[in-house]
Each structure stands twice: as structure tokens, then as C-alpha cells.
Write a protein that binds this DNA or RNA. Structure first.
Length: 123
DNA sequence: CTTCTGACA
DNA sequence: TGTCAGCA
């Protein structure tokens, strides 16, 4: 299928499909005309990409993950051992990101709770 | 008319 | 990531 159908099948904007390809996440075949030809597996790949993206993984890592992943019972499962280790590290980064966000939230809370306090006017 | 690449008031 | 231009 070509671009138009792929957009309809995946619900992903044409612009994004090209972007994923630039990032090496998708490699559709090409017609001699240069037109992209997507396969059924590409549709699945896009679903995975969106899943991984919403999980917060950087596109660079997703590029490595895609070839080492399988879909089982509508669940993503790793087929490479080293991949699991790398994802575990990513998981740690997320945990750390949450800590920092909570720190920011707390800081804002103190300011919000204090409420507005005009500076005392100098006489 | 559809898709492609490259670029950015 | 939208969007527009200029091609094929």
C-alpha cells in the first residue's frame, strides 16, 4: 500500500511516517518512481513505535529495540537478552525523571501555598 | 490528482 | 511537527 492507505491504516500523519523513516524506525520499499510502498508488517511496526514512544523511549533506542521485539498476546516481549538490560537502564532514567519532577512540584507547592505577599514599601 | 524532498513568518 | 513550495 502507499502513503494514503498507510495513513488511514495507522492513523499516523504522513509527516510522522516520513519522520519515523528518517529516524531509521521504518524502511518501506520504494517504487522506481520513488513512492513508498508499505507492507502489513510496517503497519504493525508503526503500532510498536507509537507504543515505545509513549513509553518515553528515545527514537535512537527504539531503532535498536524494534528488531529485537515480538508481539505476543497483544503484549510486547523482548527476544534479545541484552535488550532487556538496556531497557532496565531506561527504566532507571524514568525513575530519576520522576524524582526530579516531584522535586519541582514540591518547590512550586511551597510558593503556591504561601500565596501572594507584596513587598513591604520603603518609606 | 498523489507523493516526494527540503526548508522555515 | 505543521505547512508550503516546486517537481515528477
Amino acid at each position: 500500500m502507499r502513503m494514503k492507505d498507510m495513513v488511514r491504516r495507522t492513523g499516523v500523519h504522513e509527516r510522522l511516517l516520513r519522520y519515523y523513516e528518517q529516524q531509521g524506525l521504518l524502511t518501506p520499499q520504494r517504487l522506481p518512481s520513488g513512492y513508498r510502498v508499505y507492507s502489513e508488517s510496517d503497519v504493525e511496526t508503526v503500532r510498536r513505535i507509537r507504543c515505545l514512544l509513549t513509553a518515553g523511549l528515545p527514537t535512537a533506542l527504539i531503532a535498536q529495540v524494534l528488531p529485537c521485539i515480538r508481539t505476543d498476546e497483544d503484549r510486547l516481549v523482548a527476544t534479545c537478552p541484552d535488550l532487556v538490560a538496556q531497557l532496565a537502564r531506561e527504566r532507571e532514567r524514568i525513575t530519576e525523571a520522576i524524582r526530579e519532577l516531584q522535586s519541582s512540584a514540591s518547590l512550586l507547592d511551597t510558593v503556591i501555598t504561601a500565596g501572594p505577599r507584596p513587598l513591604p514599601q520603603a518609606s
